[in-house]
Design a protein around this nucleic acid. Structure first.
Ligand code: ZN
Ligand code: ZN
Ligand code: ZN
Ligand code: ZN
Lengths: 161, 161
DNA sequence: GGCGCAGTGTTATGAGATAACATCACAGAT
DNA sequence: ATCTGTGATGTTATCTCATAACACTGCGCC
């Protein structure tokens, strides 16, 4: 990101060590659950974690090969679907991008604050989803998943204006 | 819609008379505001109102001509952009579809309850957006627009299962 | 009547995502 | 050790969604 301006956000991409730890944790957890954390899935998760902000699917596809070779679209989309299903990544529908989960939980409703200026994105564990559930209940709807995204300016970009 | 099942929702498409009234109201309001409610814009709004549920952009394109002639994509996308800007229509990001606004207001944060079974969609004037605003404030974000969508089953489809 | 601006028409292309089918890896059963 | 079913991949092609670019038009304004 960083299209509109070039501010850098404070909680930038995590260091390689942090990424490695997160990858190992994810690998361990899923393996324990009987899931197969394959090379492609790990690679996509590594790219998402390394970015620290939403990434477009075709950027993942382009960066997929360690040697610069791109992947075929289905490879990455399948990995994304798996990661999303397992709560390790989220799709941000309003910008058609994907981001690594930062709230750890396995299967959870997430909400996002997205800076349209620098691209910084924060996953907030939402009281919001709960509220939406109440509204839905009142209307008789049985909710299965939610998309909650707020766009605006992060603290840094508000100042920089 | 109605892909997954064929239940009919209660508040189906509004009758032609209702559509006409809504169109006239929109036309009047925008003209009063100095905006130009052109033929293409009216036509797209009419299609959205007539459907009474979310419609894909390319369905609008296909149905655009009264004689069965499709429109060119930019024609419809421009109209949609205008209608959305004026608060007469909304984009549902999670399904890439568009729907006529049912809550009248001019520029407002909307939330949606969407039935994945029959496609019925309800716009709820959201206390949710307010909550999200609070969360955003706490994080220092200045919110400009929100995307709030809940997927699940409508009352009718819950029963039909 | 010359200008500026908003809206349209048209062509082409970019960006996002999936269908379909062949093949492969692996765990558990025989 | 083989068989066999299931889940994962590789590969090709295609589909859906959306916009860039540029020429042209209608209209209010000076
Ligand atoms: Zn999460
Ligand atoms: Zn920012
Ligand atoms: Zn609305
Ligand atoms: Zn339904």
């Amino acid at each position: 990101m960083g299209d509109a301006c070039h501010h850098h956000h404070t909680d930038g991409p995590p260091g390689a060590a942090e990424v490695e730890r997160a990858l190992a944790a994810a690998d361990g957890r899923l393996t324990a659950e009987g899931e197969r954390m394959t090379a492609a899935r790990l690679r996509v998760l590594a790219l998402l974690l390394g970015a620290g902000e939403p990434v477009k699917a075709y950027d993942l596809i382009a960066r997929f090969g360690e040697d610069g070779q791109p992947a075929k679209p289905p490879t990455v989309y399948r990995a994304l679907e798996f990661l999303e299903r397992k709560g390790l990544a989220h799709r941000i529908a309003s910008i058609s991008a994907y981001v690594a989960c930062t709230s750890g939980g396995r299967d959870h409703a997430a909400a996002f604050l997205i800076c349209d200026c620098c691209g910084a994105t924060q996953e907030v564990s939402s009281p919001v989803a709960g509220d939406l559930g109440l509204v839905a209940d009142a209307a008789g709807y049985a909710i299965e998943r939610t998309t909650i995204e707020a766009h605006g300016r992060c603290p840094a970009c508000r100042i920089a204006a």
